[in-house]
């Protein structure tokens, strides 16, 4: 440790490591920084001023334009995104928890078979499901409604997988037994004992499913034609496609992108520890 050549080596290593990490951090943050700068600029400054430097501060005007464009459709998209991603992930987490808990704690025939079917589901590319789902839904008239996006989104095999491991780790059998001996039914036991013990892991499951729905672009694109049902991603995609004909839309695409990602980024940073538990157990598989 006191060897001078080791000390020099570690000083060089330290500097190299820090420089490399700073470069990478710049790479990861640059597009977000650019977006913040661009969202504060008037449309006319976008091309005429340097992209990484602030110019005339026009953020509030841009926000006003964004939320009043096309009769306030952006606000509608934001509400839709919340319905699909927040409500969908909440329902999805609940049914994953029920199923994962049953798979972890109830001994029954065919349990391992059901679990391997679910594990197979983790590997199924969801984009491969979207087109056949569209055909099935168009026969039942669900296409182009909220349900077309919402219903398939609540299914998360990965969520069940996580719920099963988390239950096995966090809910001791003895506690369930004593609840049962006290005369509590299985559902009472689940809601009053198990769910409370599982709650940190439920946050993790919720986050993973939220991101999956929030990121899923293919499904809403296949299912929805009515603009008023779009999530933000699909709406911004449509606007972005029109910027060649209507260049003034560019500023709204930029401001709209920023407005949609900032709250999610903030929540992510606040809930960081829940990611790590989830990713660790995913990795331990």
């Amino acid at each position: 440790m006191s060897n001078p050549s080791t000390a020099r080596e570690s000083r060089v290593g330290r500097t190299a490591a820090m420089s490399l990490m700073f470069l990478l951090a710049i790479y990861f943050l640059l597009p977000i920084y650019f977006l913040i700068v661009a969202a504060t600029k008037p449309q006319s400054d976008l091309a005429s001023t340097f992209g990484l430097a602030f110019s005339h501060f026009d953020l509030f005007h841009n926000l006003h334009t964004l939320f009043s464009r096309d009769g306030g459709i952006y606000g509608r998209w934001a509400v839709n995104s919340v319905i699909y991603a927040v409500l969908g992930a909440a329902v999805g987490t609940f049914i994953s928890a029920l199923c994962g808990y049953a798979l972890a704690k109830f001994p029954f025939r065919g349990r391992e078979f059901l679990f391997s079917v679910i594990l197979g589901g983790v590997l199924v590319p969801t984009t491969a499901l979207a087109l056949p789902l569209f055909l099935l839904f168009s026969k039942t008239g669900i296409v182009n409604t909220y349900f077309a996006v919402f219903l398939p989104s609540i299914v998360s095999p990965f969520g069940v997988y996580l719920a099963r491991i988390f239950t096995a780790a966090a809910v001791p059998d003895e506690l369930l037994e004593s609840a049962r001996l006290d005369g509590a039914g299985e559902f009472r036991t689940f809601f009053s004992v198990a769910l409370r013990l599982m709650s940190p892991s439920l946050v993790t499951i919720f986050l993973f499913q939220f991101v999956a729905i929030w990121n899923n672009f293919f499904l809403p694109m296949v299912m929805l034609q009515k603009e008023s049902l779009f999530p933000i991603t699909l709406g911004l995609y449509e606007w972005n496609g029109q910027t060649a004909r209507a260049p003034l839309l560019q500023e709204s695409v930029i401001t709209g992108s920023l407005v949609s990602i900032l709250p999610v980024i903030v929540v992510f940073i606040l809930l960081q520890r829940f990611w790590r538990t989830g990713l660790a157990s995913g990795a331990l598989k």
């Binding site: 597009p31 977006l35 992510f268």
Partner: peptide, 19 residues
Amino acid sequence: AAFMPYAVPGVIAAIMWSF
């Protein structure tokens, strides 16, 4: 810093980079 992009949907990431 490295994890932040995970909060960004692919569509919006592509829009950002396209600028």
